[in-house]
Design a protein around this nucleic acid. Structure first.
Lengths: 159, 159
DNA sequence: CCATTCCCGACGGTTTTAGTCAAGAATGGC
DNA sequence: GCCATTCTTGACTAAAACCGTCGGGAATGG
């Protein structure tokens, strides 16, 4: 259970783009410098972000990348999913084999736990927007009330 | 971001031991069979669990493993930490290099986010006990109110 | 003394991660 | 049309992590 470099870098890049939002597109190389991300690696990550529809690109001399939506409307959840796939997916299928599969034994009562964990993580990541990272309100400090709000809402709509 | 096999297996083993709690110690090989975990791998995982103080072992003919505490008093958080170390640790140190380190740039506003995520995960895992897995109350279904309770408590004691 | 069972370090194969590289295609300026 | 700039994309490699396997040893109980 760890934050991969792709996730960390993608978050940095998106944060930098959020800061530049509204202005000219930013070239990949410039992002690499300012965010301290290996130059040739940047393109790969940005490619995933573009395919996920989070950024738009323009080629040519004045080209570069820009957010495809305002920073308030992009959550960390989307960023993470773009570069790393769904969180905590496919636990059950992976470690069961033979006839005694997940449905027939103890693991049965375990899988909902992982699902619950995945939901908790997703919910947290959804509560963090690029804008909230920029203005420093994201994270443990001021975010606690925000969570409770989100969780109450989630509980309310009886997900 | 995924559940490793060690985590999954450790959880299964602990659940099985929880079920056997109060009776005789269970041999590793028996656990391997009933939980569908590779035989030689079991010992390794149990070793970590023992070093973490979660299980106790006895050698010899009637030997085996047993929980060192009742199932209500062992949380998944402890199990996960025993086999996988702390969750989401050391993000900052890993991907920063050179002078422009974490404290001097954007990453600064990012690291509290990862810390918050780690706390959210830990809080969830702490809310799941072996007992709650056994009686099926753990997981997404009936757990939502339980979370809110835990989170309110956490917010209350101003962690 | 012997069978059983835990103890524990070391080893190897596979998969994932992290990063590099190079050829190509679009864009804008001249 | 030509050129510099910048994105596009797949292939490639090195290192790390993961997932076990193996074998010798040390308790324990009979």
């Amino acid at each position: 259970m760890r934050i991969t470099s792709s996730i960390e870098y993608a978050t940095r890049l998106m944060t930098a783009l959020a800061r530049a939002h509204g202005g000219e597109p930013v070239a990949a190389e410039r992002l690499a410098e300012s965010d301290n991300v290996p130059a040739d690696y940047v393109s790969q990550i940005l490619l995933k972000l573009r395919r996920a529809g989070l950024v738009e690109s323009r080629r040519g001399s004045a080209g570069g990348y820009a957010l495809s939506r305002p920073p308030e409307r992009i959550t960390l959840s989307e960023v993470v999913r773009a570069v790393d796939g769904d969180v905590f997916e496919d636990v059950c299928e992976k470690y069961d084999s033979g006839e005694k599969n997940c449905r027939h034994q103890d693991a049965c009562s375990i899988s909902p736990v992982w699902r619950g964990l995945g939901e908790a993580v997703t919910r947290y990541l959804e509560s963090v927007t690029l804008a909230s990272i920029l203005d420093g309100s994201a994270g443990s400090c001021g975010a606690a009330p925000r969570w409770l709000e989100a969780m109450n809402a989630a509980a309310g709509r009886k997900k």
